[in-house]
């Protein structure tokens, strides 16, 4: 166990610098966004109310009040989120390939450690999960602060204060922060199954190289088909025979089957087929 945690820590340290830069970019861009976007709104207020002498009520009726909703839909807020998602998705692949690239193949040393090779596989997955949760937490801390700054910037009569729950309910944010804890576990659990499948596909490539790419793609396809099989069968063959709750439980079971399958395959590849 201790060896496993050391591996996790080791993987963590390797990405930490870039990770902190990523966090810095999020914080910087989002605060710039809050200030620029609200200034933009205020200049519109100025233009219409003080120059064109439009009554305040008419302005609000025409342009609406300002709230965090507009910030959440701005490039400055969404950009860093998209960037983080892209960065972590790329890192899912890079976390493996960096061990093979470079002058001395580091993977050789990792696999020679007196511990199960599957521990390397799990350590990488745990680090990815930790990085995802870390970013989610930071963004969750940033939202109330940004909301407060926004409140300072925009005069009260034009501002509509949203609560944190209303903000996380805004369209795409409700996917990052699902409304109930159960859904949080399901979404991110599903995401982690996808990460494990990607890892196994990478191991296919590392085991069989060019041919392995095809195996990897086939493996991913097969896993996805098995996972959505209950929905497919229900829709295409059974004409909606099952009720939603029944489909849900079948999906949970399928997810666990796919997860077990992918870990077993990874174990087999790491033990018998992997090339360094």
């Amino acid at each position: 166990m201790n060896r496993f945690l050391k591996l996790v820590h080791f993987e963590f340290q390797r990405f930490l610098k870039l990770y902190l830069v990523l966090m810095g970019v999020i914080i910087l861009l989002q605060f710039v966004g809050v200030i620029l976007e609200s200034q933009n709104y205020l200049s519109r207020v100025n233009e219409h109310i003080y120059k064109d002498l439009m009554p305040k009520e008419q302005f609000i009726e025409q342009f609406g009040t300002y709230s965090f909703l507009q910030i959440a839909h701005s490039f400055w807020f969404m950009g860093p989120i998209v960037l983080s998602i892209a960065a972590l998705m790329i890192y899912v692949f890079f976390i493996w390939y960096r061990d093979w690239l470079g002058k001395n193949t580091f993977i050789y040393r990792l696999f020679m450690l007196p511990t199960s090779r599957l521990n390397v596989y799990f350590a990488k997955a745990v680090v990815i999960l930790l990085f995802i949760f870390g970013l989610l937490a930071v963004q969750l801390l940033l939202i109330p602060i940004e909301n407060r700054v926004l409140q300072w910037m925009v005069p009260n009569e034009y501002f509509n204060m949203l609560s944190i729950n209303e903000i996380t309910n805004i369209d795409y944010l409700s996917i990052l922060y699902p409304p109930t804890f159960m859904e949080f576990i399901l979404y991110y659990g599903g995401g982690m199954i996808a990460v494990f499948i990607a890892f196994t596909a990478i191991l296919f490539e590392r085991s069989f190289r060019l041919k392995g790419i095809i195996y990897g793609i086939l493996y991913t396809g097969l896993s996805s088909v098995i996972f959505i099989a209950p929905i497919l069968i229900n829709q295409l063959l059974l004409e909606d025979y099952f009720f939603p709750l029944e489909i849900f439980f079948m999906e949970v079971v399928m997810g666990l089957i796919v997860l077990a399958g992918t870990i077993w395959t990874a174990h087999y590849l790491l033990k018998n087929k992997i090339r360094v």
């Binding site: 996790v8 820590h9 963590f12 340290q13 930490l16 930790l130 949760f133 870390g134 989610l136 937490a137 930071v138 969750l140 801390l141 609560s163 944190i164 729950n165 996380t168 922060y177 409304p179 109930t180 804890f181 949080f184």
Partner: peptide, 27 residues
């Protein structure tokens, strides 16, 4: 040497945990 990773773990658990406890109460 492990303070950074420990910190990130606790931060995530506390922030996300608080968020869901809070939203189930506010909900």
């Amino acid at each position: 040497r492990y303070w950074k990773i420990t910190f990130l773990c606790f931060l995530s658990i506390i922030v996300i945990g608080t968020f869901y406890i809070q939203s189930s109460l506010a909900g």
